[in-house]
Design a protein around this nucleic acid. Sequence first.
DNA 1: TTTAGAGGTCTTTTT
DNA 2: GACCTCTAAA
Length: 741
Amino acid sequence: MSENSNNYLNFLNKQQRKAVENTFGATLILAGAGSGKTRVLTFKLLHLLVKKLASPNQILAVTFTNKAAAEMKSRVSNMLNFPIDKMWIGTFHSLSLKILKSHYEKVGLKKNFIIIDADDQLKLIKKICEIEKIDTKEVSAKYYQIAIDRLKNKGISYKELKPNKYRQNDEELIKIYKIYQEELLRINCADFGDLILFCIKLFKKDEEILKKYQKLFKFILVDEYQDINLIQQRWLEYLYGGNKNICCVGDDDQSIYSWRGADVSNLLNFDKNFSKPLIIRLEQNYRSTKNILESASTLIEKNKGRYGKRLWSENKEGEKIIINGFWETKEEATFVTDKIENLISNKTPLSEIAILFRVAAHTRSFEERLISIGLSYKIIGGFRFYERKEIKDMIAYLRLVNNQSDDLAFERIINVPKRGIGKTTLNKFNLIARKKNISLFDAAREFISITNTKTNNEIFNFVQNILNWKKIKEKFDHIELSKVILEDSKYLQYLEKEEKNLKTPESLSRIDNINEFLESLKDFENLDGFLEHVGLVMENITNTSNETISLMTMHGSKGLEFDYIFLAGWEEGVFPSQKSIEESGNKGLEEERRLAYVALTRAKQKVFITYVNQNRYSYASHDYNMPSRFINELPKELIELNDSSYLADNNFLDEFIKLENISDDLITPGRKRLLKKQKEEIDWDINQDIDAYSNLNEGDRVFHQKFGYGRILYIEGDKAEVDFEKGSIKKIFIKFLKVNP
DNA sequence: TTTAGAGGTCTTTTT
DNA sequence: GACCTCTAAA
């Protein structure tokens, strides 16, 4: 341990110190943004070790995201002189996996089981629906996927699910859930929910095992407690039951995962779930300037469902929040990068700059701009490396070599690259597999032994390849194996061909990604280690150079801090998200507001907010959006509003700022106002009859295949802005419009 | 029987 | 823009 390990307590304020030194029993730390909660947790860990209250492997430290876990690990390893490998620091899922790896057979899994992602989940459910002849037109496979996920978050198994007469598809759901669970076991896979559920099952079933872990974990530390769902709470309760020492850190204002089953009431019921807790509040913010803190606090006070706290700070006032509106996304990206260039010339390190988005897909225009001006950036989360098609294909090959009963992997690659083994042949495999209760791989072998068709040769080769690779796996390492697979399967050849023919940005980067994939394999000892990492983390761990700008979602930014924060896309419908309000009404809106609070409080020095008023490009059409209501909710005296000349000319901002009380109706008010305004401006003439395609005028009633009937707002070159009756305004090429008589 | 292409639908946030 | 389904052609 380091020399100054005895005076670490001096680095803490009174409340923090109390939190650290109160080691036994239950402690709940209500910690505001930037109040040093990670510091408290890591120091507490240190304290437990220094005071010899526990040895490293007797402390269980649970975090919510992989990033937070990595952060804590690095902080702890900086303070301590010994390797932290033996410590139980990780996410609920990774810690559950660690436990399950010693007891997999007790829950019906086999060695080296694989964790499947949402993609595979959906594929499996679709397959089940098809086999069981469950119609997925009215109720989609996705619905069932989400439903099963939600049930798992609540710890409800298919046996416990009682059909609800107010929901129509519960019978189907139960059936699918049951088969889904059986299928997972058969192909030796578990989904995210299972990792935690299986642990609980294990604890319930085997008291000896439960006792062992209860005894082992003398102290439990939990980060981001407000985001914990029911099943995670139960997981904690089981492990808490032994030594009864638990310390949770949370902030109700930062609860942003209710859609994943996170339940803030865990925070409320803390004293019911854990006995006689000490509750400590941390309200001094060390991170942000007074202005940023004040702005964020004013915003979050608009929420009704909160415990209420007011953060304070001894930091300097700082600068105002700069808000800029733009006509289109390009302009927005250019503005942001210009500002970044300014910051760089003032010696701001790139690592202190982050651009945050509501939707991961919105990073694109910024990426283009950053590439063109040559600034290095990294995307955290978002388009996950391991979710790219070519990477998933490669992983599927490895998975199948690893485990021939992995049907999901088999189905993914049996015809990639194309081998002339299409749907019909696959259906035949499926038939055999089900009849004989064997894997698709074995069914394929069976198929060639009993039939004689043209495709037999290809199937035979495929099967032989897998068996060959299996032998190679035994003799060589996973990197060598991957290279052989790339060659033998002709996958690399297939990518090269695609690159030549298509020349799309995606196809051009595929081979690079494969090379990066091979590179990232080097970080793992063997195939098992790699597959485990892929299943849990989904992010590439190479390419973590520090001197870059960070681009990420607001969700992804939680727990991080930067000197300068750029918040892009603050538009009604985008943020707050239309979907979230439609789905959960005021609750959804409040969660979006908490997200805004999280985003603002990431900044240490200065915040820039931007919005694109007129031309947010999404899903191949252009959307109109009003500035986010959250802009309106910031204290007027602490913000500086600027807008592009177009917006100034049209008084968009003036109009917007005048509005004080915005209702929480289901349709976002910004959109409502805009629709109203434009409808008034145009004098409709419904009965006008014009030839299709030509002579289109403003005000014409038109028809579009995708969006239905609408009216032309104005025409600009070969495009027309159309107000569709379904409620959206889109910019469409005129040639796609027909005039309705 | 497979594959390419056309046309449709659905688009949040993460372990 | 990605992914699915349907259809027509190979």
